[in-house]
Simulated assay, not measured.
Amino acid sequence: MEKIFSETISYEQARAIMELRNAHGVAKPFSIGFVTFNKTTGEGGDYMELPLTVLLDNSMALSKKSPKQNLKIERELEKGITPKGPNHWVNQTKNFAVLVANPDGSYDREKIVKVHLRLILTINGKEIIW
C-alpha cells in the first residue's frame, strides 16, 4: 500500500524538528517513519513508524545502557580496553528513544532504535525531501 503525503519538508527542517528542546533542555517528542535495513544480514525493506520518539545525543550514551552494561564498560575502561563506538558519523545513523506517554504527561523510554538517516521517509506525517 503506497502512502501519499500532502505536505513535504526538507531534511534540514526535519533535522531541526528532531533537535528541538523545551525551555528545560528536554527533547520534544515527534514521530518518524522509515524503511528498515540490516547491512549484515541483507534483510529489511519494511516500513516502520515510531509514533512517539526523541533523538538521543552522545551525552546520553551511558545512560541508555543498563546498569550491568555500564559496569562492564567501566571495568573495560579500567583495563585499558576501549569499547567499540557506534560510529554514527561514518555510518550516518542516529539512535532514537521510543517513548510511552504516561497519564501525568511524562514519558517513559520503551526501547532504543538505531536508524540510518537516509532511510527516514517522514517526520510528523510530512514527507522528507532530500
Rank of each mutant, 00 (worst) to 15 (best):
E49Y: 07
T41W: 00
V26F: 12
A16G: 00
F5L: 12
F30Y: 02
T36W: 07
E19C: 08
Y47R: 14
E43W: 03
S6I: 02
A27E: 01
H24I: 00
E43D: 10
Q13F: 04
R21C: 09
T36I: 10
M18Q: 05
S31E: 07
G25E: 02
K39Q: 12
P29D: 08
G45S: 09
H24S: 14
R15C: 06
I9N: 09
F37E: 09
E49D: 13
M18N: 01
R21D: 05
E12K: 14
G42V: 09
T40M: 14
Q13D: 15
F34N: 07
T8R: 15
V35F: 08
S31G: 07
M18Y: 08
G33D: 09
K39L: 04
D46F: 08
N38T: 09
G25V: 06
G45P: 06
N38P: 06
T40E: 14
N38W: 09
T40P: 02
G45L: 06
E49C: 10
E43T: 07
E43V: 05
E12C: 01
E7K: 15
F5P: 00
A14N: 05
I4E: 14
F5D: 11
S10W: 05
G45Q: 11
H24C: 08
G25R: 03
E19Y: 04
F37C: 08
P29G: 04
A16I: 05
I4F: 10
S10Q: 08
G33M: 05
Y11A: 05
Y11F: 13
Y47G: 11
H24F: 11
G44W: 10
G42W: 06
M18G: 00
E12Y: 07
A14P: 03
Y47W: 13
F34V: 02
R15A: 07
T8W: 10
E19M: 11
G33Q: 08
V35T: 09
Y47M: 13
I32W: 00
K28C: 10
I4D: 11
S6Q: 14
G45D: 08
I32N: 01
S31A: 14
P29F: 04
N38A: 12
Q13V: 04
A27V: 03
T8P: 08
E12W: 02
Y11P: 01
F5I: 04
G33R: 03
